[in-house]
C-alpha cells in the first residue's frame, strides 16, 4: 500500500469528501448513510443538495446490494459482486457521487442500453417513464421497483456518466458518476 499521506493528498486534490471500498451490505449502507449525512451537515451543505447526494448514494448502493443478492453467483464470485467502491466529492458548487461494482459480462449490454436510453431523455420524458413504472406491477421476487436509475437521472444536474472495464472471468467493472 502506498504512503498514507500520499493517499490523503490525492483525495484532497481530487475534492473527495468520502470514500469507501468494501462490501455493500445493508448494515454497512445504513452506517455509510449516517456518515454521509453527518459529513455533509458538517460541511454546511444546503438541505436540498444533501438530499440529492443522499438519494443518489442510497439508490446506487442498494442497486449494488440487490444485484449481488441475486442467486446466480457462485461463492467467491458473490463476495466480489458485493464489493463496491463509493466516492463522494465536491467540484465547485456541484457534488459528485461515484459508484463502481462488478457486473457479469452478460448483464452489461442490458445495463448500458438502459443507461443510454435514459441519457437521451428530456426531464419531462424521464418523469413520464418514472410515473409509468410507479403505477406498474413489480415482477414477483424483484428486490427493487426498477426506478433507481431513473430517479438518479432525474436527480442529476448533468447527464449520467458511466463506463465498463473488462475484468477477468466473465466480469466487468461498472462505474457510474452522478453529478448533483
Amino acid at each position: 500500500m502506498g504512503d498514507l499521506d500520499q493517499i490523503r493528498r490525492y483525495l484532497a486534490s481530487e475534492g473527495i469528501l468520502m470514500s469507501f471500498n468494501g462490501p455493500f451490505r445493508h448494515s454497512i449502507i445504513e452506517e455509510l448513510g449516517k456518515a454521509v449525512r453527518r459529513h455533509l451537515e458538517a460541511e454546511a451543505v444546503r438541505k436540498s443538495a444533501m438530499a440529492d447526494v443522499f438519494t443518489v448514494f442510497i439508490e446506487a448502493a442498494q442497486n449494488v446490494a440487490a444485484y449481488a443478492a441475486q442467486g446466480h453467483w457462485t461463492g467467491p464470485e458473490r463476495a466480489q459482486a458485493e464489493t463496491g467502491v463509493l466516492v463522494i466529492g465536491r467540484r465547485g458548487d456541484r457534488y459528485l457521487v461515484r459508484c463502481g461494482n462488478y457486473v457479469r459480462s452478460q448483464d452489461t449490454p442490458g445495463l448500458l442500453a438502459r443507461l443510454d436510453a435514459l441519457a437521451g431523455m428530456a426531464p419531462a420524458d424521464l418523469k413520464a417513464l418514472y410515473k409509468e413504472r410507479l403505477h406498474a406491477e413489480v415482477p414477483p421476487g424483484a428486490l427493487g421497483a426498477g426506478l433507481g436509475l431513473i430517479r438518479m437521472a432525474r436527480t442529476a444536474s448533468a447527464p449520467l456518466s458511466y463506463s465498463v472495464a473488462a475484468e477477468d472471468a466473465g466480469l466487468e467493472f461498472f462505474s457510474l458518476t452522478v453529478t448533483v
Binding site: A51, F54, T55, I58, E59, Q62, R133, L134, H135, V138, L143, G144, A145, L147, G148, I150, R151
Partner: peptide, 16 residues
C-alpha cells in the same frame, strides 16, 4: 424524512 425508490413504489401502491 427519506424514501428510497422501492419505498416510494410501496407508498404509491398504498395510496392507490
Amino acid at each position: 424524512t427519506y424514501l428510497n425508490t422501492s419505498s416510494i413504489k410501496c407508498m404509491m401502491d398504498l395510496l392507490d
